[in-house]
């Protein structure tokens, strides 16, 4: 009765505690679900080193799988490769915009020493509410580690943008 497909399907419905419009799979945090005998091993990758939601993510995965009859659930952490906003799925990006959060562009790639950037980060950001371009950066640091704050000059609404990392 316990099959890998089922466990994966259950785990892939668990949502992010801070952005509940996204599943952990859409966010790219859920890396793998393995079933061996009665043991389900779930592999996750933290978004940011200090992401305080990691404990809740782990807790939610364990409890949801247990509620679906998987008694022995183990969550392992995979640190390498580091999480990238490029791992957010297309469905995840649509869900973000549907909920008023702007989705990230392509993450920067690094070759050699990281260059210093003395000017504000330039991004092409469209307002997730009215679709206008030309949004103004308010702050590189938002309410969660992964977002910056923008303001739309057309509809005047502030909104969050998931940062490219």
């Amino acid at each position: 009765m316990v099959s890998p497909t089922d466990a994966r399907a259950v785990a892939s419905r668990v949502t992010d505690p801070e952005m509940p419009m996204l599943t952990l799979e859409d966010l790219g945090v859920l890396r793998d679900v393995e079933v061996e005998g009665d043991v389900v091993t779930v592999t996750i990758t933290p978004t940011y080193s200090g992401c305080p939601a990691m404990a809740t993510m782990r807790d939610d995965l364990v409890h949801t799988l247990r509620d679906h009859g998987y008694a022995d659930v183990r969550v392992r952490v995979s640190l390498q490769p580091a999480w990238s906003s490029d791992w957010i799925t297309e469905r995840g990006r649509r869900a973000l915009v549907d909920h008023g959060v702007s989705a990230p562009g392509a993450a920067p790639g690094h070759v050699g020493p990281v260059a210093l950037t003395l000017t504000p980060t330039r991004r092409t950001v469209h307002c997730p509410r009215c679709g206008s371009g030309g949004a103004e950066l308010t702050s590189e640091f938002g309410p969660t580690a992964c977002t910056a704050i923008y303001r739309c000059p057309a509809c005047l609404e502030p909104f969050e943008h998931v940062k490219e990392i």
Partner: peptide, 24 residues
């Protein structure tokens, strides 16, 4: 050490924007 290298590779992404913030 694969653990140290993973912590460092992750940290590079974060400290990059710490440095940019302070420099600006």
């Amino acid at each position: 050490d694969s653990v140290l290298s993973a912590i460092a590779a992750k940290g590079v992404k974060e400290v990059t924007y710490h440095r940019d913030y302070a420099a600006r």
